[in-house]
Design a binder for these strands. Sequence first.
DNA 1: AAGAAAACGAGAATTGTTCTCATCAACGTG
DNA 2: CACGTTGATGAGAACAATTCTCGTTTTCTT
Lengths: 147, 147
Amino acid sequence: MTTQTNTWAEHALEALADAGYRRGGARTAVVEALAEHDCAVTALDLDDELRRRRPPVGRASVYRALEQLEQLGLVQRIEVCRGTAGFERVDPTGHHHHHAICRDCGRMVPFEDPKLERALEQVAGTMSFDVTEHDVVLRGLCDRCAD
Amino acid sequence: MTTQTNTWAEHALEALADAGYRRGGARTAVVEALAEHDCAVTALDLDDELRRRRPPVGRASVYRALEQLEQLGLVQRIEVCRGTAGFERVDPTGHHHHHAICRDCGRMVPFEDPKLERALEQVAGTMSFDVTEHDVVLRGLCDRCAD
DNA sequence: AAGAAAACGAGAATTGTTCTCATCAACGTG
DNA sequence: CACGTTGATGAGAACAATTCTCGTTTTCTT
């Protein structure tokens, strides 16, 4: 409910409209739900949240909306672990963070680092590859799980 | 069949023995197969390769061996795309590369960059998190798929 | 050589994701 | 503003990758 998330939700709905998508209750619900989360959520978690709404949102719609949002660059998909994807809103300013994930409890801690970003951009520049996004995950034990 | 891969296979088999695992045909076959690959392979690709051997190796054994190897830090798991994992041997010296993956054709191009590694180590140091590994993936279009 | 325990493999079961298709609703048009 | 076209939706089936189960085979210890 911060200014930030409202901005993102509005931005996203506008971008969807601009891209020619019609207004739809399910998709809007997905956007609203994503706006509430400051870090990555799995599709199934969103599905759980949204299934309870009246009217309830179907699983297919959740996945569909996420895919469309990803296409438009409004949402980034992150491989969280063992074949489950996390989704997280993309700040229109390009500002973003990465994640450290605990291999014991699965807890996800976001972090950001300008030097890392710079290094990533530089590498991307040297490749014969049109890099549009990157995905950095640190894995290990979080402070709670470390003995 | 390079010196490098032989070294890794031997190293891995020794580490398995040290960890108390008994000698087993299936696991050894998985190690040998991984040694042949210089970049990440999916479990199902390995399964395809090994199913043909005489005696054939079962799917369950492939997954089991990969998991054990990952536990021992001999193999790294990489989320390739859409819920499929890639596995790649870990060089005992710590030397490693990362991957750029084409979102169109799935082609994977390895790269390495000391500056990036340094940045990653630095960030890891500042976190209240015992980071044991990291995973960097650049996504975009490879030169063949870029229009 | 014999027994205990690990390794194995076939197939079933799970899990996350995508697909299908019959309704429903949004939006431009007359 | 009613109407028709077409996109949006959701229940459930279909899929694909991975994990689990369990009876059989091997390995290794004694």
